[in-house]
């Protein structure tokens, strides 16, 4: 189902670029009536603004969309879409693991950066010990301030790296959900 967004886009483009045959073939890959119907409706909304291209394209589109609808209905009758139980998925091991992993990663880092960030104004407001020179004439306050920049850059980079792993886990969950509807 993750693919759907891509297909929605493709549907729009296909109508405009008259590259329909490929789309129809691609669509056959997607299972379930709901999935195809969604692309179909998005195609319809897409034509609302490409109608100006002339009657010919309009005609072609409706033939195309009817074929799609018929195909989708046929496919639906043969292979009805499973109702997905979302509660069950949120209770599933893999989803719980994803949320646990995210929490374990984000919460300590957040506490760290909030403390680190507020430490600077607190220390400069209530104490003066950071005003002592550290390197040459440069005092600790400046080093602390520069460290905030480095912290932001490092944490952003680390998160972006780590999020690739979360993305994989999320894709797994979506896949399980589509295959089994049970999500284990």
């Amino acid at each position: 189902m993750q693919l759907l967004k891509g297909y929605e886009e493709k549907g729009r483009e296909a109508v405009i670029d008259s590259d329909r045959k490929k789309l129809v073939n691609d669509l056959k890959v997607i299972k379930g009536f709901l999935a195809v119907k969604k692309v179909y409706t998005s195609c319809i909304s897409a034509t609302k603004f490409s109608l100006t291209e002339g009657e010919r394209s309009e005609n072609l589109f409706f033939r195309f969309s009817r074929r799609m609808q018929m195909g989708a209905e046929k496919e639906y009758k043969q292979n009805p879409a499973k109702e997905i139980d979302y509660v069950q998925v949120t209770e599933s091991k893999s989803f719980k693991k994803l949320m646990h992993d995210r929490k374990k990663f984000i919460v300590p880092l957040t506490i760290f950066f909030l403390v680190f960030y507020f430490l600077l104004p607190v220390l400069t407001s209530y104490t003066t010990f950071l005003n002592t020179p550290a390197i040459g004439d440069i005092s600790w306050v400046w080093l602390f301030a520069l460290a905030q920049f480095i912290m932001t850059w490092v944490l952003c980079t680390v998160y972006v790296k780590k999020a690739a792993v979360f993305d994989k886990q999320a894709d797994e969950i979506i896949k399980e959900m589509e295959e089994g509807g049970e999500g284990r």
Partner: peptide
């Protein structure tokens, strides 16, 4: 929640 966390369509 599933949509927010994984991007699946609700």
């Amino acid at each position: 929640y599933l949509q927010a966390q994984t991007g699946i369509e609700g």
